[in-house]
Simulated assay, not measured.
Amino acid sequence: MELIATCPMGLESIVARELKELGYEDMMVENGRIRFRGDELAICRANLWLRTADRILINMGEFKATTFDELFEGTKALDLPDWIPANGEFPVEGRSHKSQLSSVPACQGIVKKAVVEKMKQRHRKEWFEETGPRFVIEVSLLNDVATLTIDTTGPSLHKRGYRKLVTEAPLKETLAAAMILLSRWKPERPLYDPFCGSGTIPVEAALLGWNIAPGIRRSFPSEHWPSLPDNVWQQARDEAYDLVRDDVPLQISGSDIDPAAIEVAKASAKSAGLGKEIRFEVVPVAKIRPSGDYGCFITNPPYGERLGDRSAAEKTLRQLGSIFDTLESWSAFVLSPTKQLEHYWSKAPTKRRKLFNGRIECTLFQYFGPLPPRKPKEQ
């Protein structure tokens, strides 16, 4: 079947790389989504393993729809009852862009009516109580082409389940994971986040370092679908547990000037089962003392709003730049809405990459230091 992994703008190539690492090569990258081919097990694996995607959708079909009649008949022709049982709950969500059918509520109503008619034919019933498993249908209209999907994920994949508390303006787990994947960090290298807030970057790094599937601690609505046998989900979860490498030593640290933020970070790490693997401390950026060689700063410095004024934010950036200058073998990856980070640091970045922190356009400034020397292969 064709599946769709949705993601924030700018992360498409990272999600595509993750899918390839899972073994799914047949794909097409588009704005905000990656189409790929897979079976029932692919649904489970993608939900458990993708660190930078938002949702996994089943593409039920696409067709031209410039009128409500075309939308109704196109929807009715799809085999949605193959997935939705007689007691299934099937709400309809929608969006429309550059299409003649611009009223989203009207489109949702038409699709709902068409699905009900198809369900009547399949199940020989006139009324559906919708008390069973949940199947969220989405109708997406773009340039007069309707795409109908079923959501297998439920709450976005960034909701891993370990973050019970949050600080002000927390970084999404998916974006934190993307920053780590865009760096060249490996578990044998130190990682330090001097503005760790609620600890998202260090926790995501530890999950990656130990090869823990980010979705392993949460549930998904598709786990309750009769069309996806229990043994498929069990197989995917057993695979994930077998692949955990919790014997790998980690050198991951985070600090913040806010004691309350550090308490939240410690709680998140403990909830993720990583409380003993990450070192958190309350310390201003000017006094941090990273240890080790070939380490990585991976951080999202607070913007002016969080610090109270813009000058304070600029001062902390300068302080971090001064410390980075003293660490000749280290790399740095700094996400910031300012486009002139090098104005506060003494050198230009190796690369820049546009990313979105929610709706805020940011730049990931990438300063690549030397890689650790390769270890000689054992004879």
Rank of each mutant, 00 (worst) to 15 (best):
S227Q: 02
I4K: 06
R245I: 13
I212G: 04
S227P: 03
G199Q: 02
G61W: 05
R17I: 14
A169T: 14
E188A: 14
K64P: 09
G308Y: 07
P85F: 13
V248A: 00
K164S: 13
L141K: 04
A177D: 04
I360S: 11
K315V: 03
R163T: 06
T152Q: 00
P170M: 00
F297W: 03
T152A: 00
G74S: 04
A267R: 08
L335Q: 03
F72L: 13
G199I: 02
E21A: 13
L148R: 02
A106I: 00
G38W: 02
V264D: 05
T147M: 13
L157V: 10
N143C: 08
F365A: 05
L78Y: 07
G38H: 06
L142S: 10
Q340N: 13
S329F: 11
S322Y: 10
R289Q: 15
L250G: 07
E204W: 09
E188R: 12
R310W: 15
K354H: 07
I14Y: 02
K159F: 15
N47K: 11
V115F: 06
P249Q: 12
D39G: 14
K347I: 08
R245K: 15
M9G: 09
W233N: 01
A176V: 12
L41F: 10
S346W: 05
L141P: 01
E239L: 12
N211M: 07
H123Y: 15
P370A: 10
T167L: 10
P194K: 06
C196A: 11
S103G: 10
F135M: 08
N143D: 13
V232F: 07
K339Y: 06
V115T: 10
T174H: 10
Y241S: 05
K375T: 12
R37I: 08
T167K: 11
Q319P: 06
H224D: 13
G23Q: 08
S331F: 12
R237D: 03
P284Q: 00
I43Q: 04
G161W: 00
H123Q: 05
L250C: 11
N59M: 11
G197F: 02
M27T: 05
I212C: 08
P259Q: 08
P370N: 03
E138F: 05
K339W: 04
V145R: 06
E129C: 02
V285L: 03
D54S: 14
K186C: 00
P337I: 12
I216C: 09
E277Y: 11
A260R: 15
K287R: 15
K120T: 10
G197C: 06
G23I: 07
I14G: 03
D193E: 10
C362H: 00
D230V: 11
E277N: 14
C7S: 07
H343C: 01
F333T: 06
V145L: 01
G10F: 01
P214C: 05
P85R: 10
A177I: 13
L191W: 09
S96K: 07
T6P: 04
S219D: 15
P170E: 00
V139P: 08
G215M: 03
I56R: 09
L71E: 04
K270V: 14
Y344W: 15
S219G: 15
W210D: 05
L78P: 06
L48D: 02
G254L: 08
T153S: 14
L327P: 03
R184G: 15
R33W: 00
M27E: 05
R306V: 02
